[in-house]
């Protein structure tokens, strides 16, 4: 088009100013046209990219429970450490002896109901406070994000967490019935790790690393029988605190 105009121009002897104005006008119109067309293509593209992001987000949010707070992990870890410290103070240095558990529960002269009662009260206390604090922080986070705490993704998470956990719990009771007390601490660690890996498909993927660590620790604990309390403190205390802190800074800061 420009070329045509260029050829035609000398014949008609148009005044240079008019000629310039023509070129200017044509350039302006084509530019405008191009901008409009490209803009249309761009907005269409941007819109679809936005749609895709939204789709991915909805698929993620509708299947995974993602408001699990890192602080829940930290508080559960602290509760476990306090519990372990109380148990250690109560039993004294005996807690480290490999045969300690064996003596308490199997040798007639060592069966002491107050030991059992103390252990039971302590473990229920630790469990309730850890769950309570954990619930509190996750509930607070859900409220901040404006979602609901009890929905299908929560139910799915709890269900898949519960299967290995309940199995492990029952297995530990069976171990106790057989008198194999020294294997209880490693077993809880291993089954807890399996439960976390199972649940990781329904919440933040990262908890599978915590699960793997718990399983490794549980296996080591089952070799070095008798140091149950130490491994238990590392697994449920230290690992929870480390994991919770990492999660907190990764997702909530």
């Amino acid at each position: 088009m420009l070329l045509l105009l260029y050829n035609a121009a000398p014949k008609k002897k148009i005044h240079p100013a008019v000629y310039g104005a023509w070129i200017y006008n044509i350039c302006f119109v084509t530019l405008l046209f191009k901008v409009l067309l490209i803009n249309r293509a761009m907005t269409e593209q941007d819109e679809q990219i936005e749609n895709l992001t939204e789709i991915r987000n909805l698929m993620e949010r509708s299947t995974r429970f993602i408001s699990l707070s890192g602080l829940s992990g930290v508080s559960a870890g602290i509760c476990a450490l306090i519990g372990a410290a109380i148990a250690y103070r109560y039993f004294g240095y005996n807690a480290y002896f490999p045969n300690f558990y064996y003596h308490i529960f199997t040798e007639a002269e060592f069966i002491r109901m107050d030991f059992l009662q103390f252990l039971f009260t302590l473990s229920v206390g630790v469990l309730v406070s850890a769950l309570g604090l954990g619930f509190l922080f996750t509930w607070r986070r859900t409220k901040q994000k404006g979602g609901s705490l009890w929905n299908s993704s929560t139910r799915r998470l709890l269900f898949h967490l519960a299967i290995p956990l309940v199995t492990g719990g029952l297995f530990c009771i069976i171990l106790l019935l057989h008198g194999e007390v020294y294997m209880v601490a490693p077993t809880t660690l291993v089954f807890y790790g399996l439960a976390l890996i199972n649940a990781s498909k329904y919440t933040l993927n990262d908890i599978q690393y915590l699960g793997i660590s718990e399983i490794i620790l549980g296996l080591i604990a089952s070799v070095y029988v008798g140091y149950g309390l130490v491994f238990w403190a590392i697994g449920f205390g230290v690992l929870h605190i480390v994991y919770g802190t990492v999660m907190y800074f990764k997702y909530e800061k």
């Binding site: 749609n51 939204e54 789709i55 991915r56 909805l58 698929m59 949010r61 509708s62 299947t63 979602g147 609901s148 929905n151 299908s152």
Partner: peptide
């Protein structure tokens, strides 16, 4: 439509979803 895209994306990854859950998520 945005809402229809949303409904379909949720139903693609969930077997069954009730009305209230859909409303809440969208």
């Amino acid at each position: 439509n945005r809402v229809r895209l949303g409904i379909m994306s949720i139903l693609m990854v969930n077997q069954k979803v009730d009305f209230t859950s859909l409303k809440e998520m969208l």
